[in-house]
């Protein structure tokens, strides 16, 4: 328990450095724009995702699930996703089904509970990795263009590219506000167990409080941003169909896209074949 608390209290502000986080997110967003996956057409990838993001939910066949899992694992590797994202993926899978598994055992479940949960885990993992491939592998702008082609609201695709633009700035600002607390603050000593608890509470409180300055500073920024958007024709474009057409005309399906699709289909067909054979 003490060890856990120890780990936790160190995690939040000390080891968990904003700089590292910022770097990982940026890496994930922009550091892999020269991979095979990033070169694909976003529409094809989204369609691909629709299959691997949905179908595994409906299928309980083990060999199909395993096969899909392998495929999305390979695409994830091809997309050169940042380490942090993969870690989060692992954490996510565990928190969704892993803990359920433990609880089931606790409530007197036996081996019969394991098989469905294994299948559930595979499903969750496949779907997560498919989304990791598409959403981390594609650069945000391509992604938002692809979504727009499928008729997603303009506001969403704007939000995606804007978020990627803003994130480094927001993080830096947040970091600086937190640093202000560190430079001027006097955190409780954390040698003893109760000290560690107090230190943890102190840290959480500071994160909360730092949103007060952050909100005001961001409000200042938003105002300039929205004024500039107005000048740069954002609202004009939102209601103009030609703009959408011009923007989407940049999308092009290449042989690589077709090849990617065909290989995926081949792989899925092979898996189906296996499941009928065994």
């Amino acid at each position: 328990m003490e060890k856990l608390m120890n780990q936790l209290s160190e995690n939040i502000l000390d080891k968990f450095s904003m700089d590292y986080l910022r770097n990982q997110v940026l890496k994930n967003a922009y550091g892999n724009d020269d991979t095979v996956i990033a070169g694909l057409d976003p529409r094809i990838l989204i369609a691909w995702y629709l299959f691997f993001g949905l179908v595994p939910w409906f299928v309980n066949d083990l060999s199909f699930l395993l096969g899909s899992f392998l495929l999305v694992m390979i695409t994830t590797l091809l997309a050169r996703v940042a380490g942090l994202v993969l870690f989060l993926f692992g954490l996510g899978v565990f928190s969704q089904t892993g803990y359920l598994f433990l609880v089931t055992l606790l409530f007197g479940g036996d081996a019969s509970a394991v098989a469905p949960l294994l299948i559930l885990t595979l499903k969750v993992a496949t779907i997560s990795l498919a989304s990791v491939t598409v959403f981390s592998g594609l650069d945000p702008d391509k992604l938002s263009n692809g979504l727009m082609w499928y008729g997603c609201p303009e506001r969403l695709s704007f939000s995606i590219s804007y978020a990627y633009r803003m994130l480094p700035m927001l993080m830096e600002e947040f970091q600086n506000v937190l640093l202000s607390y560190r430079l001027r603050g006097n955190p409780p000593a954390h040698d003893t167990f109760s000290g560690k608890v107090r230190y943890l509470i102190y840290q959480v409180k500071i994160i909360m409080e730092s949103f007060y300055p952050l909100m005001l500073n961001t409000a200042k920024r938003s105002r300039t941003t929205v004024e500039a958007l107005e000048l740069r024709g954002y609202r004009y474009a939102a209601v103009n169909k030609t703009v959408k057409k011009i923007r989407l005309s940049a999308l092009k399906v290449t042989y690589n896209d077709l090849l990617f699709l065909a290989i995926s289909v081949l792989w899925v067909a092979l898996c189906l074949l296996c499941s009928t054979l065994f």
Binding site: Y162, R165, T225, A228, L231, A237, T242, V243
Partner: peptide
């Protein structure tokens, strides 16, 4: 054309060419 004092907030796209051409795209 207008350039703000806090100019970094008026840049809304992630890449350079994209931002430079953003207004032209919006005005079709």
């Amino acid at each position: 054309g207008y350039v703000y004092q806090d100019f970094e907030n008026q840049i809304v796209r992630p890449t350079v060419l994209d931002d430079a051409s953003y207004a032209c795209l919006n005005y079709a």
